[in-house]
Computed example of a mutant assay.
Amino acid sequence: MTVLELDDIDTYYGNSHVLHGVSLELAEGEVVALLGRNGAGKTTTMRSIMGVTPPRRGSIVYRGENIVGKSPDKLNERGINLVPEDRRVFPTLSVQENLVLAHKLAADPKPIEEMYELFPILDELRTSDAQNLSGGEQQMLAVARALVQRPSLLLLDEPTEGLAPVIVDDLQEMLQAVVDEDVTVLLSEQNVNFAFELATRGYVIDTGSIVFEGSVEEIQSREDLLEKYLAVSPEEVA
Rank of each mutant, 00 (worst) to 15 (best):
E5N: 07
D7V: 15
D7E: 12
D7F: 10
T11L: 11
T11I: 13
Y12H: 03
S16H: 15
S16R: 15
H17V: 11
V18L: 11
H20V: 08
S23C: 07
S23G: 05
L24T: 07
L26C: 05
A33R: 09
A40L: 05
K42N: 04
T44E: 03
T44I: 04
T44D: 11
T45V: 09
I49H: 03
G51N: 03
P54T: 04
P55V: 13
P55E: 11
G58N: 07
S59G: 09
R63P: 11
G64C: 00
N66Q: 08
I67P: 00
P72L: 07
D73S: 14
R78D: 12
I80Q: 02
P84N: 09
E85G: 08
E97M: 07
L99A: 06
L105A: 13
A106T: 00
K110I: 12
P111T: 03
I112N: 00
I121H: 09
L122E: 06
D123P: 15
E124A: 10
R126P: 03
N132F: 15
G135V: 01
E137C: 03
Q138W: 04
L141S: 06
L147W: 12
Q149R: 15
T160I: 02
L163V: 05
L163G: 04
V166Q: 14
V166K: 13
D170G: 14
D170S: 11
E173W: 12
A177H: 14
V178M: 05
V183Q: 09
T184P: 13
L186A: 08
S188Q: 01
E189V: 00
Q190S: 02
Q190A: 01
N193M: 03
N193E: 00
F194Y: 01
F194P: 02
A195C: 05
E197N: 14
T200W: 06
R201H: 10
R201N: 14
R201D: 07
D206L: 04
D206N: 08
I210P: 03
F212A: 09
E213Y: 07
E213K: 14
E217M: 10
I219P: 10
Q220E: 11
Q220M: 10
S221E: 10
R222C: 03
E223N: 07
E223K: 11
E223V: 09
L230V: 08
V232G: 01
S233I: 12
P234M: 10
E235R: 10
E236I: 07
E236G: 05
